[in-house]
Design a protein around this nucleic acid. Sequence first.
DNA 1: CCTCCGATCGAACGTTCGTTCGAATTTGTT
DNA 2: AACAAATTCGAACGAACGTTCGATCGGAGG
Lengths: 211, 211
Amino acid sequence: MGSIDTARKRTPAFDSKRIHLLAAAARVFSEEGYDKASMRQIAGEAQVSLAGIYHYVAGKEELLYWIQFHTFESLLRGLEKSLEGIEDPRQRLGAAVGNHIRHFGDNMQELKVCARELETLEGDAYEDVRRLRRSYFEAVHNLVKELQPQRGTHLGSWLATANLFGMLNWFYQWYDPERSRVSLDDLAAQQASLFLDGYTSCNSIGDDRGN
Amino acid sequence: MGSIDTARKRTPAFDSKRIHLLAAAARVFSEEGYDKASMRQIAGEAQVSLAGIYHYVAGKEELLYWIQFHTFESLLRGLEKSLEGIEDPRQRLGAAVGNHIRHFGDNMQELKVCARELETLEGDAYEDVRRLRRSYFEAVHNLVKELQPQRGTHLGSWLATANLFGMLNWFYQWYDPERSRVSLDDLAAQQASLFLDGYTSCNSIGDDRGN
DNA sequence: CCTCCGATCGAACGTTCGTTCGAATTTGTT
DNA sequence: AACAAATTCGAACGAACGTTCGATCGGAGG
């Protein structure tokens, strides 16, 4: 179904080294951008020869494909888990934001690559990731709809969700884990509060600068 | 002062053709991304030979530099004009959002290039644009501070401003002028309302899908 | 008419890119 | 120990990149 062959060599050692390679590629992609990043840089980061990369993936595009595929799958799985047992619509949306920010903290480079290179892949690989991405968007969109089950219009909730993703996907542009004195949980709570109630009635945090 | 020579040839015809070239470059950059875009594509888009480009700019980096410089300067000038005569802090912030979105509508490719290629330039050219960008951010940040002159903390207003820019800078990812049945003014009003009062009490728009 | 100078371009340069290939090396199994 | 398969890598390929250079064009001033 997918555009890229997924079931080939299947020893645990092979998979493990491929994951290691994908992590190295994510670091280089997030630092340089996909187009500027070179396979030679990735080989250096992964401590493998240039030609050695092609034993684990078919090419540069497939590196990006797997990074994005795994990341969006993990976001979706985490979202479902985060919503378990929570009924209140406001808390459910807060859990979704918390899940996204937690993933960001654990896989910063991968999330950055997903946000920045949304339109980089082409053909079937693009459609594959796009399907996953749409599922994630729709899942969050449904949570937004639940906030105003009767009053809200479809367009209104759709626009609000798009802007929520704007906040989430722009995160990597200003968040610096080295400098921030605010925990990711607090930042997620602030973002959820800003989206739900606006800045005017938004709970603020301590007084240290984040950046 | 700037890193790039600005006062050279100065006939009106020369300046006009350079502006035409910069517009063509912005179209190609916004479509392909800076790194993937080639000088040959830009030459084709501008209807000039490849070598002809170098009569108007020193190289590829300078194309991006001028695009970003002019765009941020225009954003800043427009912001000052938009605030004239407006006293109410909420209306002032709404005017700032409106100014940004209006600029987006008038110079879609340039705004996209500014949002996407924020970390592309290097050295003095990067610092030049960064200064302008900081000025724009601080101007909006001050408007946000005015919303809660006594209660808000510096960090709280800074984080809110960063998230506001997330909404604004992510705009190009989902807004499609061909499909949208909502005017840019309405979208700007919705974004300002979302930031000020949150989704719960956010005024919604009509019922047509934007995308 | 001739001269000069900005404007324009075809052709080429050196570099870097993603990818390939065949040989060498390591690993796992009898 | 001996063989097969998996893994690794140096070297090279063709293509595309940004940039340069010298020649040509075209209009304004003497």
